[in-house]
């Protein structure tokens, strides 16, 4: 059974499944969901807990052994399996399917894993887990979802804020929910339960937002200039490798060109997007950028990318980040300084 993270609490109150798989790259929600399962299990009498961590030297046989052995301290136990890579491999897949085919009594298997790709979710072992247990995927909230999440979290503490304040908070903690939770704790300690003003938040909350290159690409396609600059600054100060940024940017530039070319050849919007394998949730962004930009601009962006590549590799003088910024701004629709190349 697939559940959303918000539905977990209610489902746990009803009954306990024999297997839980919680997967995602966002540590706060992942930890909280796993804690909720452990709490509910403890309440139901699962007193003992065995922790198994999957690393390079992990023996998958120990999962079966652990399932078959009885605890000397309690009747019921939790096997807490941690799979940080999100990839159990052939052996792990076999161990999971075998476990699901022959569920041991009075044992609850809790798997916390890194992000699972769609191929793993369709795999045999995931299907087997899905049949007997619960699978929860954790997604980091963004945009309005993040604001709602913050609002809920603050409401739990008796705090509230106006839309403007919440937006400010969201901007400062985006992509870093651990920091978000801490900032809310801090606000609670400072102010107690009350209605917070924008000023309260501004003066207390530091910028701990974190982005990856894909966030940057989305901002670039959406044409949000301020966001582009902030993200580039963030990526740079975090020490993100420039080739990675360039790779992500050129990938999207080429994507836009291929869609433009397909449209030029008479394909419909939907066909062009489908042929280019654009994900459902990115379609709007991609199409918007495609309509905003001319082919000459895209060509220019690609030429600037070659310059950025030379700067990264030291074959040309100057800062690669400057060129990367120019590319983002050109695609983002704010062609400033772009004439320098």
């Amino acid at each position: 059974m697939r559940l959303k993270a918000e539905q977990l609490e209610a489902a746990l109150n009803k009954n306990l499944a024999p297997v839980y798989l919680i997967a995602g790259d966002e540590p706060l929600q992942l930890g909280e969901a796993a804690d909720a399962v452990r709490r509910a299990a403890k309440k139901a009498g699962f007193e003992n807990r065995e922790v198994l961590t999957v690393d390079a030297h992990f023996e998958w046989a120990s999962l079966g052994e652990s399932a078959d052995s009885f605890s000397i301290f309690a009747d019921k136990k939790i096997i807490d399996l941690r799979l940080p890579s999100g990839k159990p491999g052939a052996e792990g897949a076999k161990a999971f399917t075998e476990y699901c085919a022959r569920l041991p009594e009075d044992t609850l298997l809790l798997i916390t894993s890194g992000k699972l790709d769609s191929a793993s979710l369709k795999s045999k072992w995931a299907q087997a887990l899905d049949k007997v247990g619960v699978i929860i995927q954790i997604w980091p909230p963004s945009g309005q979802d993040l604001i709602n999440w913050l609002q809920n979290r603050m409401a739990n503490k008796g705090l509230s804020g106006d839309q403007e304040g919440l937006r400010l908070l969201a901007g400062r903690v985006e992509g870093n929910l651990l920091a978000a939770a801490q900032e809310i704790e801090k606000l609670f300690v400072l102010h107690g339960p009350k209605q917070l003003s924008r000023h309260d938040i501004e003066s207390a909350v530091a910028d701990s937002s974190r982005y990856d290159v894909f966030n940057l690409c989305d901002a670039m396609l959406a044409g949000k200039t301020g966001r582009i600059l902030k993200m580039l600054q963030g990526l740079k100060s975090e020490g993100t490798a420039e080739p990675l940024v360039l790779w992500a940017l050129t990938r999207d530039i080429r994507l836009l060109i291929s869609i433009k070319a397909a449209r030029y050849q008479g394909f419909s919007k939907d066909q062009a997007l489908r042929n280019a394998h654009v994900w459902e949730n990115r379609k709007g962004l991609v199409l918007g950028a495609e309509q905003r930009l001319k082919l000459t601009q895209l060509n220019k962006a690609l030429l600037m990318s070659t310059e950025a590549d030379r700067r990264i590799k030291g074959a040309s003088k100057g800062s690669a980040w400057d060129t990367l910024t120019q590319i983002c701004l050109l695609i983002g629709g704010a062609e400033v300084m772009a004439e320098t190349i």
């Binding site: 050129t250 060509n299 690609l302 030429l303 990318s305 070659t306 590549d309 030379r310 590799k313 074959a315």
Partner: peptide
């Protein structure tokens, strides 16, 4: 050199 060959051809062919 280490330069990205696809970008190198992109540049030549766009020109």
């Amino acid at each position: 050199t280490q330069l990205n060959k696809q970008l190198l051809f992109d540049e030549l062919l766009i020109e």
